[in-house]
Design a protein around this nucleic acid. Structure first.
Length: 957
DNA sequence: ACCGCCGGGTGCC
DNA sequence: ACCGCCGGGTGCC
């Protein structure tokens, strides 16, 4: 098996190819390291934060004189099993940070270590306390990290061989360089260990990790003349920063020059050769700030040898050509992805030589798989093996695409250029992106590149893509997708993209490679390039782990190797080590630029958003509605009033909520509550299965009503909600913990009723009731529906192009709304939490599409979709019912009032007069004030009391 | 001479 | 390696 790891290690390291026992049955050092890294996937290595320190031991490294790897005072070393060592199958090799072998672990100790390592009982890490001058052996501090359940096994295995795991400062403890050695992580030490951060502080610091990374990055730079679009100030800043990063000769973070050596201050590793500068980084701007344009500007401005691409016209490229090209590239064609314009001079069909001589414009080749109508084929004979009848490229001409400058230098093929870092013949930029944004890149190139610029852009996509690395290396830009890249890479045959020595590789939506086991990630890591960029609005999606791949891609030594990342950054940070967090911040800051829509440039926000205005429209119920409403309200008030009298409001909280929900539903449409049978009352006499069923109904009612309940244990939004037999809802983990700690006597935190783990009922998830059939026959409107419809009808009359979001917390209400919408001939789409990812995307795409006949209305459930949801097509929002939490409404509105919104946004909130809704609005205002005062009512008691007051206010009791 | 002692050769796993 | 170990040389003092 060939793993990308191998090449990665082999890349800059001569020593990696040492082959110590003949080539046949033994493996090279780099293979061994790689294998050990591969073998331990999904194990101790994979989840370093789940590991605890078992203890440490002093061992010795022997055989130093046979190897060239040197180690510094306090330097970290890695331990690699060598099961095929002919002298001892227990052999454990010691390597320094760059992977050069230093020696072996002494035989006696290697025996238990081999057992421990092979069975994945622990990860063993080494630090050499001193030993630069040792000739034959040196000591090594070994620390054993693993899962708690393996601790005994590790200790006894070591004991069997006469070793005893110690804790802390064994061996004198004068481990050099205070503050940053293993000592720091030896838990029970009297030494000055920084107080670990609380999980909350950590999370906070984490959230802020990527906040506005733009200090000291305010310098602006004008784009080269080939960029036809004027850059905004923040884009000029980004350009300046990116150019500076690409041309940087600085040492990578944490490296210093010392005594003519280069020292990594985190691992204490020193080496003579200067570690390569990281020529690139992460552009993590929010979406909409123009990452694509900035990147195009970068390509054109820092084109080659630090100079911009010039516009000088050359005899090879007569002016007439440009005009002609424009004519042959009607925009409409491109947008539909259908191509009629095909020229025979296209690079797919012409020889590159000819292309040179005849100054044939480079053509962007867009091979849509479904399009085989175009392209009169020519000269297909030369490449029959690639030919697939179903798919052949549609081709299009783009004004910006031209023949590149005549260049005699040999193109940057990685085989010919020995050192990737040396700016040899590398010329081409490879852009890898998800398929969904491919066309956007093409559009943007066309839009932002000056018509007279000679820039060749090749779309490496589709069955007929030109799989010729020499050809690819001669382009200025090659555009491809992660899919194409990895399918080439996964093929046994060589991958052309991997044979090119790129000037620059750009990963669009770079967070896509965050899973290191994915083929596309491996494929990306294995690309050769001088400069590397990651574009991503969300560089960290889940955890710190996500960052490693990005750092690894940037080839930031030594973190491109997982072990060093884990030991130096990830674990210290997850253990709450302040120094580790600071190192992480330094690291991220050095390579990342991030601005959000609220970032300021010269005192002004980066992007001016259109205005947003909120109107409240009061709705009066009809007489009949009012009568019925009051009846429902009276009934509810009686019940709740009784609870108040008994002092059991919180005990019966679920019932209280249910009553409120019914009232709120009624305000929207009377029909809504007919389907939801009263969940209140009758808790005493019923069979367990009936009880269970009722509880499920209750929890569904509570959670499905959008009330944003919080768990009374953790005081946060419910995660994995469960309901107790006494009808209170908690996070599953929280209430289980309570029960565990209180054992037999566990009581419900809200009502003190006895609770048991086996009596918790889980929330089955939103399960659309299939009672839409009975709603259809007897359709009656409601006052609120009428109010909405008259708004929509007026809007349609005034401006057909305006799109609206109709938002409710009740998906059933959305279903009801479909009826009058259909009736009036509105074209609409819908997005709610119950939809599959696939149908969501479909609904979204349909709605965001601006062409005629696209839906003008989206029915949206308040909490559907994440913050990432982009609904900028809409500029009108109708909030059908007030939410408990005003922030939820804001968030929802933000989905259209965000970057990319061109129109002013108008929001209409419907509130039924003299109803629970009005009272909710009052409570909202109160809550808002509390938030503004940063006064969240921290403890449970306060919150309970606040709840009771809320209910009192809502029911006017 | 089936030991002790001496001193040279030697040395990871 | 300023060690330990091995194995050959040697053998009163």
């Amino acid at each position: 098996m060939q793993f990308p790891w191998f090449r990665r290690f082999g890349g800059g390291l001569e020593l990696s190819s040492i082959d110590f026992f003949g080539t046949d049955q033994t493996e090279t050092l780099s293979q061994a390291i790689r294998r050990s890294a591969e073998d331990t996937t999904a194990s101790v290595e994979d989840e370093p934060e789940a590991n605890v320190l078992f203890g440490t031991i002093q061992g010795s490294v022997v055989g130093l004189r046979y190897y060239t790897g040197v180690v510094n005072k306090g330097e970290m070393v890695s331990l690699v099993r060598e099961p095929h060592n002919p002298y001892d199958r227990n052999a454990v090799m010691v390597a320094n940070v760059y992977g050069s072998q230093v020696g072996h672990i002494k035989r006696q100790l290697a025996a238990p270590m081999a057992h421990i390592m092979d069975n994945n009982l622990a990860k063993v890490e080494g630090v050499v306390p001193y030993g630069v001058n040792n000739t034959f052996t040196m000591p090594v501090h070994l620390s054993f990290w693993g899962k708690e359940e393996n601790k005994e096994a590790v200790i006894s295995e070591l004991n069997r061989h006469g070793f005893k795991l110690g804790l802390g400062s064994k061996g004198g403890g004068q481990v050099a360089s205070p503050g940053r050695t293993i000592d720091q992580f030896f838990a029970p030490m009297k030494k000055v260990t920084a107080i670990p951060l609380t999980p909350e502080q950590l999370k906070n610091a984490f959230d802020k990790l990527f906040d506005d990374l733009m200090e000291d990055k305010a310098r602006e730079m004008e784009a080269g003349e080939a960029v036809s679009t004027p850059l905004l100030p923040h884009q000029k800043q980004a350009l300046a920063w990116m150019t500076a990063r690409e041309n940087s000769t600085d040492l990578p973070p944490f490296w210093v020059e010392k005594n003519s050596l280069y020292l990594n201050v985190l691992t204490n590793f020193a080496i003579q050769e200067r570690p390569e500068s990281v020529c690139g980084g992460i552009l993590a701007d929010d979406m909409g700030l123009g990452k694509t344009l900035t990147t195009i500007a970068l390509i054109l401005t820092n084109f080659h040898n630090g100079k911009p691409l010039s516009l000088e016209s050359t005899p090879f490229f007569p002016e007439s050509m440009a005009t002609k090209r424009k004519k042959t590239a009607p925009k409409e064609n491109r947008e539909k992805g259908v191509e009629e314009t095909v020229t025979e001079e296209s690079p797919t069909t012409s020889h590159s030589k000819r292309q040179h001589e005849d100054s044939v414009p480079i053509v962007i080749i867009d091979s849509d798989d479904e399009d085989d109508s175009a392209a009169p084929k020519k000269k297909a004979k030369g490449k029959t093996e690639e030919k697939q009848p179903k798919t052949h490229p549609a081709q299009r001409k783009v004004p910006c695409s031209h023949k590149k400058k005549a260049q005699k230098k040999s193109p940057g093929l990685s085989k010919s250029s020995s050192k990737p870092g040396a700016s040899g013949g590398a010329r081409a930029t490879l852009i890898v992106c998800p398929l969904s944004v491919l066309s956007n890149w093409l559009d943007q190139f066309e839009q932002h590149v000056h018509a007279d610029a000679k820039l060749s852009v090749y779309l490496y996509y589709g069955a007929e893509r030109k799989r010729e690395s020499r050809f690819l290396a001669r382009q200025d830009v090659v555009l491809t997708t992660y899919n194409v890249l990895s399918s080439d890479y996964g093929n046994k045959k060589s991958s052309p993209l991997h044979d090119v020595s790129w000037l620059r590789v750009v990963l669009d939506e770079g967070h896509i490679i965050r899973n290191p086991n994915a083929l596309q990630s491996k494929a990306v890591l294995d690309l050769t390039a001088e400069r590397r960029w990651i574009l991503s609005g969300t560089p960290i999606q889940n955890s710190l782990k996500d960052l490693w791949m990005l750092i690894s891609f940037l080839k930031m030594k030594p973190f491109d190797v997982r072990e060093w990342w884990n030991r130096v950054i990830q674990r210290p940070v997850t253990l709450g080590d302040t120094k580790g967090l600071k190192d992480l911040q330094t690291l991220v800051k050095g390579i990342t630029l991030r601005r959000t829509k609220t970032s300021k440039v010269g005192g002004r926000t980066v992007v001016q958003l259109p205005e947003r205005r909120v109107f409240v429209q009061h709705v009066a119920l009809s007489e009949e509605e009012r009568r019925e409403y009051e009846a429902v309200k009276r009934e509810g008030r009686d019940i709740i009033g009784r609870y108040f009298a008994e002092g059991t409001v919180l005990t019966n909280y679920a019932d209280v909520l249910a009553i409120l929900v019914r009232l709120r539903q009624f305000c929207c449409h009377p029909q809504l509550l007919r389907s939801s049978t009263s969940a209140a009352g009758a808790t005493d006499t019923s069979t367990p299965s009936e009880l269970r069923e009722r509880l499920i109904k209750k929890i569904t009612l509570v959670l499905g009503s959008g009330s944003d309940e919080e768990c009374a244990v953790c005081l946060e939004s419910l995660r994995q909600p469960v309901i107790t037999y006494c009808a209170h809802v908690y996070c599953k983990a929280c209430i289980c913990e309570v029960i565990r700690s209180e054992q037999q006597n566990a009581k419900c935190p809200l009502c003190r009723a006895q609770i048991k783990i086996q009596e918790l009922v889980e929330y089955p998830g939103e399960d659309e009731d299939s009672d839409s059939s009975d709603t259809k026959d007897k359709w009656l409107s409601s006052s609120k529906v009428d109010a909405l419809m008259s708004n929509l009808l007026r809007l349609r009359q005034e401006d057909k192009s305006i799109k609206s979001l109709v938002v409710s917390q009740f998906t059933k209400f959305l279903s009801l709304l479909e009826i009058p919408l259909k009736e009036h001939g509105f074209s609409f789409t819908r997005l709610d939490g119950s939809m599959s990812q696939r149908s969501r995307t479909k609904a979204l795409q349909a709605f965001q599409d601006s062409s005629q006949g696209s839906p003008s209305i989206m029915l949206l459930s308040l909490k559907a979709g994440g913050v990432g949801l982009n609904l900028t097509a809409a500029s009108r929002v109708f909030l059908m019912d007030p939410a408990w939490n005003p922030a939820a409404e804001d968030q929802c509105v933000d989905r259209c009032h965000r970057l990319g919104q061109k129109k002013d946004v108008v929001i209409t909130k419907f509130i039924v007069k003299n109803s629970v809704e009005e009272n909710m609005v009052k409570i909202q205002r109160k809550k808002q004030k509390l938030v503004e005062k940063a006064f969240g009512g921290r403890n449970v008691q306060e919150r309970k009391q606040a709840r009771i007051e809320e209910i009192r206010a809502l029911m006017e009791l």
